[in-house]
Design a binder for these strands. Structure first.
Length: 493
RNA sequence: CGGGGUGUAGCGCAGUUGGUAGCGCACCUGGUUUGGGACCAGGUGGUCGCCCGUUCGAGUCGGGUCACCCCGACCA
């Protein structure tokens, strides 16, 4: 017990430190030997792959197809849309040369100054520009629309300060880009994809989210509207977990993507883009984990059930192996992923702690005692409750238990979040309380001045104008001016 | 870019007045263990970030330089 702190510091002590330690110790990822970059380890990547698979299926259900566009974007493309450049210019990595040569002392390489590119290439921070430059060639008629493409890729944003999964210089994501013949169709698509994200977050990640629309200052560079899902982490901070943008005709015009409509008249195409990234991994970790480590939702856990044998000698192990084989088979039959860990170089206690750290939803333990009684010990990760059960019908029981855990961790997260959403009318009170985290529903006069003042004085930002909240007019708590709606304000990652 | 800090074994750190390079974890070997992160014994592993200087002698003192981390402005 005294050693516990060596394995993971307590959540309450320093949430940031705890998070970082957990990511490393649960074998999800680590800091790379490259500025601001991350190595995603096999276990972490397995979770990301499961997320990808589910999301990809959902996209395809809505008619989206996958494609791939270049990593490098000519500098001139980026400057075509004025707001877009301004938003990203400060964090772009630039390729200026295409050759190295050995240095004078022949013990290293230097950039060959004669190999300078005429036009610099930008490592994509997002792909609107290069994709719309391509769409120009693909779209000529209203019959070519809607055009619905998605790409899974990496992007690079040279952030000043980085944190594993939450903000890294390079990150993995999907970016969907669609072109439409009408404004209405594009707006609908942007909202439709937000719903897909929200559904994924709640049903699969078991992370409750607030859906809404961003204020003008928080909008994506080049968008007319940015829709967002905001999740609450265990320290009460908000995490923007996915965004969907209605881009109007900004990119259509910037890249001259015109089509002839039914009346044979030229029109600019309407655009959306939408993305979620490996930041979702951060949301997953910061929503459910406890002092024993990760808690994974069964729907995304690479290992859903781990089985640990207890034995004193080879003979006993053989007996346990024989008893466990049919259980594994039955569980696999239900489509459940099982790991039977009979490695003999780790003691059972180590395995228990290790699989808890890694968030495996259900653990079965079977030893000589169980063999005599025809029982097995079942532990659920979300509550850490243990019980001894008959081997009879154990596979069905575990199957139901996984569903139960999925529901339970969502309910717990939702209860926690709902208990930390407050309506607030008084700015002094707000300033005091927002330090401790939580989501605040407050009236806002809609001005950027008020928004900026709140941010400067409290470090909290307007996360969104939430959907699905009954809105009544009121008074802005800062300016005292009239307000038509409450907005969601919180400190964020 | 502003403020603060750190560079010594794979990781975390100690190193006194300048005098043969240390500890814990991890790793390897052997044995005993195995129902909640095992124990004992032995062992492997280092251009002390880099350069220059002072000195008989530098991890330690001086100058320079590089890298990384933390706090602010930026952000999926």
């Amino acid at each position: 017990m005294a050693k516990e702190l060596d394995f993971l510091t307590k959540r309450s002590e320093d949430y940031s430190k705890w998070y970082n330690e957990l990511v490393v110790k649960a074998d999800l990822a680590e800091q790379a030997d490259v500025r601001g970059c991350m190595v995603i380890k096999p276990y972490g990547y397995a979770i990301w792959e499961k997320m990808q698979r589910v999301l990809d299926d959902k996209f395809k259900e809505t008619g989206v197809q996958n494609a791939y566009f270049p990593l490098l974007i000519p500098k001139s493309f980026l400057s075509r849309e004025a707001e877009h450049v301004e938003g990203f210019a400060k964090e772009c990595a630039v390729v200026t040369h295409y050759r190295l040569k050995t240095n004078e002392t022949h013990d290293g390489v230097v950039v060959d100054p004669t190999a300078r590119l005429d036009e610099e290439l930008i490592i994509r921070p997002t792909s609107e520009t290069i994709i719309w430059n391509t769409f120009k060639n693909w779209i000529h008629s209203y019959r070519d629309l809607p055009l619905l493409v998605n790409q899974w890729c990496n992007v690079m944003r040279w952030e000043m300060r980085t944190r594993l999964f939450l903000r890294t210089s390079e990150f993995l994501w999907q970016e969907g880009h669609t072109a439409h013949a009408t404004r209405e169709e594009a707006e609908n698509r942007a909202q439709q994809m937000l719903k897909v994200y929200a559904d994924f977050a709640e049903k699969y990640m078991a992370v409750p989210v607030v859906q809404g629309v961003k204020s003008e200052t928080e909008r994506f560079a080049g968008a007319l509207d940015t829709y967002t899902i905001e999740a609450m982490m265990q320290d009460g901070k908000a995490l923007q977990s996915g965004t969907s943008h209605f881009l109007g005709q900004n990119f259509g015009k910037a890249f001259e993507v015109q089509f002839l409509n039914k009346e044979n008249k030229p029109e600019y195409a309407w655009a959306t883009s939408w993305g979620v990234s490996t930041r979702l991994m951060g949301a997953l970790i910061m929503t459910h984990s406890d002092d024993n480590g990760l808690v994974l939702p069964p729907a995304l856990a690479p290992i859903q059930v781990v089985i640990v044998p207890i034995y004193k000698n080879q003979e006993q192990l053989d007996q346990v192996d024989a008893a466990i084989a049919p259980i594994v088979e039955q569980l696999n039959g239900f489509g459940i992923s099982v790991k039977y860990d009979n490695a003999d170089n780790k003691r059972p206690g180590f395995k228990f702690a290790d699989y808890e750290l890694k968030g495996v939803p259900v653990r079965l333990v079977l030893g000589a005692r169980d063999l005599e009684n025809g029982t097995v010990e079942v532990m659920r990760r979300d509550t850490l409750e243990k019980e001894s059960r008959s081997l009879e019908g154990i596979a069905e029981y575990v199957k139901n238990l996984l569903d139960d855990i999925q529901e339970n961790i969502f309910r717990k997260a939702k209860e926690y979040r709902d208990a930390h959403i407050y309506e607030c009318e008084n700015y002094e009170e707000f300033k005091e309380r927002v330090k401790d985290g939580g989501f605040f529903l407050c009236h806002w006069d809609g001005t950027a001045e008020t928004e900026a003042r709140i941010k400067e004085e409290t470090q909290a930002t307007i996360r969104c104008v939430p959907f699905g909240v009954e809105q009544t007019p009121g008074i802005d708590m800062v300016s005292g001016k009239p307000s038509v709606a409450r907005v969601l304000i919180a400190r964020s990652y």
